[in-house]
């Protein structure tokens, strides 16, 4: 192989490598996006059974029930139209709390029950000190976004 040929192969190889890496990454991304369902889709039976999917929404206030003496947790996830009950055994992320957005990965056991093997917590782009949050809870503040 001439040096010129060798260099050409190298260049082609690098470009191929970049494209392949990009292709695999976007494929993983697409897979992740296409298996995402909200509670309404689950309630209307659009989500497949017996296959791993993701369900995302807000944790309903007052719905979190912990089994005493185990890591088993049950809570409702809602998109404010429909609700799915999620059952999960494991450590929850630190941001997990009622009223927080979450994404659960797992399988649908029945119409309304989702058995999760992973629960991820979302947070928004707003940051504030705890004292400010406290004062925002009082009704006197107007115009401030909570």
């Amino acid at each position: 192989m001439t040096p010129r040929r060798k260099r050409l192969m190298l260049v082609v190889g690098i470009l191929l490598g970049v494209s392949l890496a990009t292709l695999f990454a976007t494929r993983a991304l697409r897979e992740n996006l296409s298996y995402f369902y909200d509670p309404t889709q689950v309630a209307q039976g659009e989500a497949p059974r017996g296959r791993s999917i993701r369900v995302g929404g807000m944790v309903t206030k007052g719905s979190v029930k912990r089994e005493s003496g185990s890591l088993e947790v049950k809570f409702d996830v809602t998109d404010f139209r429909h609700t799915v009950t999620v059952s999960y055994r494991g450590v929850l992320p630190d941001l997990f709390r009622e009223g927080q957005g979450i994404i659960a990965h797992g399988q649908l056991a029945s119409d309304r029950v989702f058995v999760a093997d992973e629960v991820l917590a979302k947070h928004d782009e707003k940051y504030m000190p705890p004292e400010v949050k406290q004062s925002l809870k009082k009704p006197m503040n107007e115009g401030a976004t909570p």
């Binding site: 990454a25 993983a28 897979e31 992740n32 992320p93 992973e118 991820l120």
Partner: peptide, 9 residues
């Protein structure tokens, strides 16, 4: 620590 995962696609 926040989301609960090192990486997600």
């Amino acid at each position: 620590p926040m989301w609960g995962t090192w990486w997600v696609w």
